[in-house]
Every structure is written in structure tokens, then in C-alpha cells.
Design a protein around this nucleic acid. Structure first.
Lengths: 141, 141
DNA sequence: ACAATCTTTACAATCATTCTAAACTACTTG
DNA sequence: CAAGTAGTTTAGAATGATTGTAAAGATTGT
């Protein structure tokens, strides 16, 4: 993502194109799906030689989420994760290295979901498929 | 659950039947499925006129989980939840009041799950169906 | 009862996150 | 471009959930 398109992107969403938001937008919206936590993003910008306060990272992640540029992923580990893939989808979560892999919503079929209780509507369905390392002792050795 | 059966239950799992663990076992294993956090359990025992330190609640929840008496529920709200239903199952999570409702695993059919990446095996599948209040303005009035 | 071991507890420490108020930056208008 | 205003960033304090620590207390086997 170029500096210009980052500017446009931010403006389209009524966010001032500040140095900080430009840097984060450049990192996040390069076309590849990214899964980040505030801490991991903080480390990534640090590696680029840019220093942003953690509070700004949190603020920006929330702002990007509010305007629909990011999606928060519920239920992964201890920290909050954000996803640049804003389509409805699910996740593999590799517990051995805290790595996330997207699963398109269309790749999973969920049927026979019970009816919601009276007065309630389904707000969303999150599926997390936990992965662990295949034990080398089993199944083929 | 009677005091005697709580004692037996604890002994069967190599846990000394202390006053604290007896109280918590009595509360938790009365036959109905319960969803608790450390804080909510702490409040419940307080209501019974018993005072236990929060640290003990945490310790006990973890011990009960380690011996298979409880199951930790991943991905709900900000706190860790524990479930007396140790069968494989899923959850409705009512975001308006942080209330959980079990969904038996057999009530949901998940098909076409993609293959796990090389070297990885599926450790478990968690489905959380988020519920919110039906808006009174929509759909029938 | 005694010693050995396991538990509980108060309190400090930690981790992720949010709050606060002051310093700073971007945008608009002249 | 200068000034004013509104939006942003930041360091550091505060919060909330959880874990660690070390000392005091309870349970068990003999």
C-alpha cells in the first residue's frame, strides 16, 4: 500500500492521515491477510524503525475496527486479535505457536443449529479449530 | 451433593477434602450444569456465608479442571469460564448479559472442515453462537 | 500427638488493556 | 503562511483478571 492510498483509505473513513495511522495502515493493508495483536503490531512497527506508543496502537486498532477496516477475533489466547480479513470466516488456531489461519465461511457447513432462545437473535457464529503438533510417536512411525 | 459424596469425589481424584474444596464441590456439582468464572464463584460462596480467598478459587478451579471435573471454556468475554458439563459441546453466549447456554455437540453438524496443515492435528473444535436481544423495532412490530 | 506433606491465604507482581491530562499535529479560515 | 480549533498522540497511572510467593494453617499416616 502506497502512502497516497493509505491517505485516501484513512480519509474515506474520516480518520486524519497522521504519521502513526499511515504507518499502521501501510503495515496492515498490504493485501495479505494479517492477524495481529496490539503487542505484535507494536513489535512490527518497532522493527521498521518507527516508535509508536502502545496506547496509539490500541486506539488505532479500535478505530480501524469501528470503521470496518479490521475485525476483532474473539476467543483466541489471552490477548485480543485483529484480522485484516473482514469477511465472515473462521479460524484454525495453532496452540503450539499462537498462529492463526483463516477458514473461509464457505468451507465449513454448520447445520442443525438449535433455535435461539425467545427474544434473542443470533449475532454471529465463531468457529475455532484448535491445532496441535502431530505427535511423532503415533500413527506412522 | 452431600458432604459425604463431595468427600468421595475429591478423594477419587486425589484431592484432599478440605473445607474449601468441599464448599466449592458442593456448589458446582449439584447435578445442574453450571458456568462460572472465578469471580462469580467467589460471589456465590460469599452469599453462602463462606469466605474463601480468590486465590483458592483459582487454584481449585484449575485443580478441578486438571482432574477432569471441569472444562475450561475458551473465548468468552474477558474472564476465564469453567463449565461443569465436561462432555464435548458448544455454547450460546448472550452478549447482553454474559449468560452461557450449552449446545450439545450432537445438535450441531459441522461438515466440510478443511484438512489441517501438514504436521498438525485437530485438537478440538469450539463453536460459539453469539446472541443479542431481538430489536423490538424490527420484524414484527 | 508428631512429623511430613499438602493447602490456603494475604499480598505483591504481572499482563493486557484502558484512562487521563498534557503536549502535539492537522485542518480550516483569513 | 499565521492563528485558532478540533482531533491525536503520548507517558504514565489505573484497572481487572490472573498468577506467584512465602508464611501460616490443615490433613494424613504412623
Amino acid at each position: 500500500m502506497t502512502a497516497n492510498s493509505a491517505t485516501d483509505l484513512l480519509r474515506e473513513h474520516n480518520l486524519r492521515p497522521t504519521r502513526q495511522r499511515m504507518a499502521l495502515a501501510a503495515l496492515l493493508f498490504d493485501g495479505t491477510a494479517r492477524h495481529v495483536t496490539a503487542e505484535s503490531l507494536h513489535d512490527q512497527v518497532k522493527d521498521m524503525g518507527i516508535t509508536l506508543s502502545l496506547a496509539t496502537i490500541y486506539n488505532t486498532l479500535h478505530q480501524f475496527t469501528n470503521v470496518g477496516l479490521l475485525k476483532e477475533i474473539k476467543g483466541i489466547g489471552d490477548a485480543k486479535w485483529f484480522d485484516t480479513n473482514i469477511d465472515q470466516h473462521h479460524h484454525f488456531f495453532d496452540i503450539s505457536n499462537d498462529h492463526l489461519i483463516d477458514i473461509p465461511a464457505s468451507s465449513i457447513t454448520i447445520s442443525h443449529l438449535p433455535a435461539s432462545p425467545d427474544g434473542k437473535v443470533i449475532d454471529g457464529v465463531d468457529v475455532i479449530v484448535r491445532l496441535s503438533d502431530k505427535s511423532p510417536d503415533k500413527s506412522s512411525g
